[in-house]
Amino acid sequence: MSKAILYDATMCIGCKQCESACAQQNSLPYNDSVAAEPVQSAHKWTVVLTKDDKFMRRLCMHCEKPACASACPVGALHKTKPGPVVYDVWKCIGCRYCMVACPFSQPKYEWGSLNPRVRKCIMCPDRLAAGKQTACAEICPTGATKFGDRDDLLREARERIRQNPGTYLDRIYGYNEVGGTSVLILSSQKVEDYGYPASAKIGDTPLPEYTGRVMERVPDFIPVWTLVLGGIYWISHRREEVAAAEAEEEQAKKTQNGGAR
């Protein structure tokens, strides 16, 4: 069963321990000035945003059908069975199509590097393989970030909304967005206010389907179009040959006539 992260913004106290745990897990620099940065970047894969006294976490959503993975020409990004969307740096050619394709704008780039990598939350695949939870979920003191099976977390999220309908917006962000994601968000406020794309805008259709509709026609298109083009070539040159042969005949007749005269 695929794993997921449930982030409940109402339980978050903004301690940013998830940020530091993430940095430590992935050998990223972390200090006060990094903690103060309010945006994600190549060295900050997750961020806790603050608005008044409310908090919201941002991280890679680990889509069930990730646009980035379908976009990558060399398959450097792929969705693993347990849930994480991971990145194989040795394959990457640096085209950055993943960054453009991602509806959540999660992949970030090492713009200053001479051998740049794409960087994003990879959902601690090594820890998952060892049967542990993600670093951010493990360290979270309030349980705002919770790790578990996606189906279980969905059930729990629905239960929380049912029990406290006044606290939550009746919505689990990530349940259906772009075909569902492995990060689920519960909140009392609109996630859109924190930079998440509106559900209506990104829709329920997995984004790879949009390009897939075209790409799946290619294998049929190639032989058909080759036949059509080859056919046209053949016809138009056949006509040429016939014309040439006729001209020759004509010529021969003329010479004959000329000879008879």
């Binding site: 379908s70 398959g75 390009t211 790409m215």
Partner: peptide, 16 residues
């Protein structure tokens, strides 16, 4: 690594 295109192919990718 532009030649990676030839060995790590992803047929779903338009870029490919």
């Amino acid at each position: 690594f532009i030649w990676h295109q030839l060995i790590y192919m992803n047929p779903h990718s338009v870029m490919f």
